[in-house]
Design a binder for these strands. Structure first.
Length: 439
RNA sequence: GGUCCGGUGGUGUAGUGGUUAACAUGCCAGUCUGUCACACUGGAGAUCGCGGGUUCAAUUCCCGUCCGGACCGCCA
C-alpha cells in the first residue's frame, strides 16, 4: 500500500485507510486515549475509546512512547470538535513499528525547543524531525530544481568535476591535504578550473552542484569546511553583465518556485511571506558602494580593496531601503581583491567581476574570465603564482577558448538568508567545521 | 588564528564559601467522561565539565585543562 501523506487526508474521509508516522503526542485519559501522529507533511489525531472491545489497543497505547513509529489501520472521520484539522482516525488496529526510548536527548517541542545547538547537532536526526527544519531542506530541493530547470532550458550541461586534485588549485583559501597511495593530493576548494575547462571543450554552458572543501579555521556563523557550491560558467559573453543577467534570472526563478510551492507553510511557521519581488537587482560599482556606505551610514571599512562584514550588511540595507531589493550586485572590484583569472577592463583598470549580496551577506562571486593566455600568464605572475603550478590550467587556453564567465553560489548561505536563520549549521544537513566532523 | 564569554537533574535556566542546590519543561505512577501545549496529585532524576590550589569547609574564589559559543580575519 502506498504511503498516505497526512496533508492529503481530507481526500479519505469515511474510508478505511492505513497510516504510518511518528507519535507526536499521547493523551491517555480515563475513558479515552488520543494519539497525535506526525509525518513530514502534517499531523492527525487517532482516537481510541477505552472499552472491552478495544482492550488490546488500549494496552498497546499505555506502553507507547512519544516519537515511536506506528502503523494504524482504521476509519478516518470528519470531526469538527477536534481542533487539529477537524478530523480523527478511529483505529481497528494499532501496531508499534519502532518503540522510542522514554526521554529524548534534546527538546524538539515547537513551543519550548531550547536545547543548545551543539546538542542538537549531536542528535541531528532528532533535530531534523521538527517541521521548520524539514522545510529548509524542502526549500533547498526546490531551489536546486528551479536552477536546473532554468539551466536545462538554456542549453547547459551538468558536470561532475573531481574533488581529488593533484595540485592545489586556485590559491587563496587553504586546501586540505590527503594521503593518496603515498602521494599528497588535495581536496577541491572550487571547481573553478574544471568548469573553465568545459568552456575550452566547447560545452557552451555548464553547471555543477557539488561539495567544496576549505581548510580555513573559521569560527563564524557562515563558514563551513565542507559546503555545497553551485557553480556555473557560460561561453560567448561580452562582459560580466551577461553573467549577472543569467544569475539574476536564475535567482528569480528559484524564489518564484520556492514561493509557489511552500509560501503557505512558510508563512504559518515563520510568520512572513517569501519575497519573490520582480525588482531588477541593482548593480553598484565597488568604488561607488564604498561612497554610498560612507555617506549614508558614516562608516569607513578597514579594507581598501574589499568590504568587511559591516560594509556588506550596510550595502545590503541600502539596497533594501533605497532600492527595494533583497539582492545587490557589487561590481568592478579592484584587481587587488580578486584572483588572477578575473578579466580586467582595459579602460577602467578594474576587474570585470561582481559579488552578489543577498540580505547583506555575500552569496556569490563571479566574473568574466581572462581567456587570452598571454594576459592570463601576466596576471598569474602579478599574483605571485608560478606558471608551472598552473600549467595544466594554462593548457586549456592554448588551442582556442571562447570568451566566458561564470559564478559560484553558496547554497547554504542563500538558505540562511531565505529563512532569516543566522547560523549556517542550521541550514546544513550535517555541518562540517573546524571542530565538528561527526555525526 | 586573535579577542571576549560560558559549562549546574534528560532539556533549558536560577542560585550559593556552610543544613535537603531552586524553577520550568520532559520522564514515571496515580486520579480524571473527548483531550487538543489536557488538567490535578505524587515520585524518580545533579559526584554543579575535568584536574589542582586557597580554606575548618569550594558547585561558588584562584590557576590549569578540555569542550562550546560570539565577534574579527579568510571566503561561498
Amino acid at each position: 500500500m502506498k504511503k498516505i501523506y497526512f496533508s492529503d487526508l481530507e481526500q479519505y474521509f469515511n474510508q478505511e485507510i492505513e497510516l504510518q508516522g511518528f507519535v507526536d503526542k499521547i493523551r491517555d485519559l480515563q475513558y479515552v486515549q488520543f494519539v497525535v501522529l506526525r509525518d513530514s507533511s502534517s499531523k492527525v489525531q487517532v482516537t481510541i475509546e477505552k472499552n472491552d472491545e478495544n482492550k488490546a489497543m488500549n494496552d498497546v497505547i499505555s506502553t507507547l512512547t512519544k516519537e515511536s513509529t506506528v502503523l494504524v489501520k482504521g476509519l478516518l472521520k470528519e470531526s469538527p470538535n477536534v481542533k487539529l484539522r477537524g478530523m480523527e482516525m478511529i483505529p481497528s488496529s494499532f501496531v508499534i513499528t519502532s518503540l522510542s526510548e522514554e526521554e529524548l536527548p534534546i527538546d524538539i517541542l515547537a513551543y519550548t525547543n531550547t536545547s543548545n545547538q551543539e546538542l542538537r547537532m549531536d542528535n541531528r536526526f532528532l533535530d531534523l524531525r521538527q517541521e521548520k527544519n524539514y522545510m529548509i531542506f524542502k526549500a533547498q530541493t526546490l531551489a536546486e530544481m528551479a536552477m536546473r530547470e532554468y539551466w536545462i532550458k538554456n542549453n547547459f550541461i551538468e558536470i561532475h568535476s573531481p574533488k581529488i586534485l593533484g595540485t592545489a588549485s586556485e590559491s587563496g583559501a587553504e586546501v586540505f591535504k590527503l594521503d593518496y597511495f603515498g602521494k599528497t593530493v588535495y581536496l577541491a576548494q572550487s571547481p573553478q578550473f574544471y568548469k573553465q575547462m568545459a568552456m575550452a571543450s566547447g560545452f557552451n554552458n555548464v553547471f555543477e552542484i557539488a561539495p567544496a572543501f576549505r581548510a580555513e579555521n573559521s569560527h563564524t556563523a557562515y563558514h563551513a569546511t565542507e559546503f555545497t557550491s553551485v557553480d556555473c560558467e557560460i561561453s560567448w559573453i561580452q562582459s560580466h553583465h551577461d553573467v549577472m543577467d543569467m544569475e539574476e534570472a536564475v535567482c528569480k526563478n528559484v524564489l518564484k518556485k520556492v514561493k509557489s510551492e511552500m509560501n503557505e507553510d512558510f508563512k504559518r511557521v515563520f510568520k512572513e511571506d517569501i519575497n519573490d519581488s520582480d525588482v531588477a537587482f541593482p548593480r553598484i560599482p565597488f568604488a561607488e558602494a564604498k561612497k554610498i556606505i560612507q555617506e549614508n551610514y558614516k562608516y569607513i571599512g578597514e579594507k581598501e580593496f574589499d568590504f568587511d562584514r559591516k560594509e556588506e550588511e550596510l550595502i545590503g540595507l541600502y539596497a533594501k531601503k533605497k532600492l527595494n531589493s533583497d539582492f545587490v550586485f557589487v561590481i568592478d572590484y579592484p584587481f587587488e581583491a580578486r584572483p588572477f583569472y578575473h578579466m580586467l577592463d582595459e579602460t577602467t583598470g578594474k576587474t570585470k567581476s561582481f559579488d552578489l549580496l543577498y540580505k547583506g551577506i555575500e552569496i556569490t562571486t563571479g566574473a568574466q574570465r581572462e581567456h587570452r593566455i598571454e594576459i592570463l600568464k601576466k596576471q598569474a605572475v602579478q599574483k605571485g603564482l608560478s606558471l608551472e603550478s598552473i600549467d595544466f590550467y594554462l593548457n586549456f587556453f592554448r588551442y582556442g577558448v571562447p570568451p566566458h564567465g561564470g559564478y559560484g553560489f553558496g547554497l547554504t548561505r542563500f538558505l540562511m538568508r531565505l529563512f532569516n536563520i543566522d547560523n549556517i549549521r542550521e541550514v546544513t544537513f550535517l555541518y562540517r567545521g573546524p571542530n565538528r566532523v561527526n555525526p
